[in-house]
Design a protein around this nucleic acid. Sequence first.
DNA 1: TGCGATTTAATTGCGTACCATTTATATGGG
DNA 2: CCCATATAAATGGTACGCAATTAAATCGCA
Lengths: 151, 151
Amino acid sequence: MPLAPADMLCFSLYSASHAMQQVYRPLLDALGITYPQYLVLSTLWSADGALTVKGIGQELHLDSSTLTPLLKRMEAAGLVTRRRDPKDERQVRVALSDAGRALQAQAAPVQACILSSTGLSTVAAARLRDQIIALADRLRDPDRQSPPDTA
Amino acid sequence: MPLAPADMLCFSLYSASHAMQQVYRPLLDALGITYPQYLVLSTLWSADGALTVKGIGQELHLDSSTLTPLLKRMEAAGLVTRRRDPKDERQVRVALSDAGRALQAQAAPVQACILSSTGLSTVAAARLRDQIIALADRLRDPDRQSPPDTA
DNA sequence: TGCGATTTAATTGCGTACCATTTATATGGG
DNA sequence: CCCATATAAATGGTACGCAATTAAATCGCA
């Protein structure tokens, strides 16, 4: 018998992730940014220095073909700067502009608002987060069990 | 202090959902479908009859602006049929074609492969799924607040 | 009976995501 | 020193995902 989406672990993730973005949307609309842009800004706020596109991609598990246009929009919005690294011109260094740094204060209440929307305590949210991170790590682990093609 | 994406519950969902789709990708590539298309097919396989676009959207929490082009691609691929309901011509009824039904057998091993990739037992996967479903339901609940943490 | 309010799909425009490919730069080996 | 290889970013193409708009059908109620 077939498994309906509602019974699938994958669909719970897919669906919860979308629901989460819906909660973020009005908060981020007020800041003029999208959810992936908020993730990039959070990375830069925490990094406290310029990161390469590659470095941001490693944090967020996104590749340059996703990040390049996203970062260009953020640069056009005046939130970040993009400069070739003079030491290695293959790399593009992304740094916060003053406006990008200023947005951190505006965004300060967002996390508390999100947590409240989850209906979870800080501890319960952290516990669930860690379970989901562990799952994602196993899914990305190249030598995970169940070899369908490893004869 | 700012919260890095790696510490956010939202990002664990975002990231795990993407990781899950990467595990699905090679399996679904072999069937010639995408992950959202697999969700639509799973819905139709379980429903055992024609559903409206609206009905599919309620199952998957997607709206017609996402589903209409997706269903048109599936129709072009010969997996489903789309017909206006003669009783109410606003509605479009989506039904499996023979090829769409036949794909169910091809897709039968997929769920077991995915479960194995999670590294979780059936019971542990179901328990995590239920926690995430409950979270998503609270996030979608219009009258949510009650932060049990912030006094 | 008839007409406006509501409901439903489709359409449009924008922003992700990702694969495959291309371009530019750097580095290692002979 | 120069070529082969490796790496980073960008590009092109396809497919979601959603807000807002448009178009059509039905319902509500006088």
